[in-house]
Amino acid sequence: MALAPPALGADYASADEALAAIEGLEADVERFLQRLERTVASSRPLVASFRRDRDRHRGHRARVRRRLGLPSSETAAASEAPDAALPALREAQSALVYAHAEALPALGDAVSVSLLLGDMVDLARHLTVIDLWIESEAARG
């Protein structure tokens, strides 16, 4: 289940636009995590681990914004998703991973690229963890 590049990927016009897209997609993922941790007790260690990474990623983006002279962003509170379906979480997570890849060419700064690449690696790992969870649920029937 490798990630094939999307047929029509985002072509961000600016770093600000790319970072705003990432922040919106990160909030989407958070909605599913909120629902999961409330309804599936065994997911809590995983959700806590993902959030630790997310907090570090926010710090990286704040650093990128400072480097590029962009205004800081407000983190909007996410409302809980209506269900805890893993495929929907996977879709949101996949969109977030792609957004990081597609943001890189818009940054124009090697340090910023390096920071977002590291975040993308964490998020791709999360995506695989979700895939493996989906596979184990399917195997269990």
């Binding site: 597609e102 890189l104 690449l117 791709a124 790992r125 493996l132």
Partner: peptide, 21 residues
């Protein structure tokens, strides 16, 4: 090059999947 940077980023996503599995 921007096109190679994007390609290499997608490749990296695959490598992370392999490593994680």
């Amino acid at each position: 090059t921007k096109d190679y940077l994007l390609t290499a980023a997608f490749i990296l996503v695959d490598e992370v999947r392999h490593e994680t599995v």
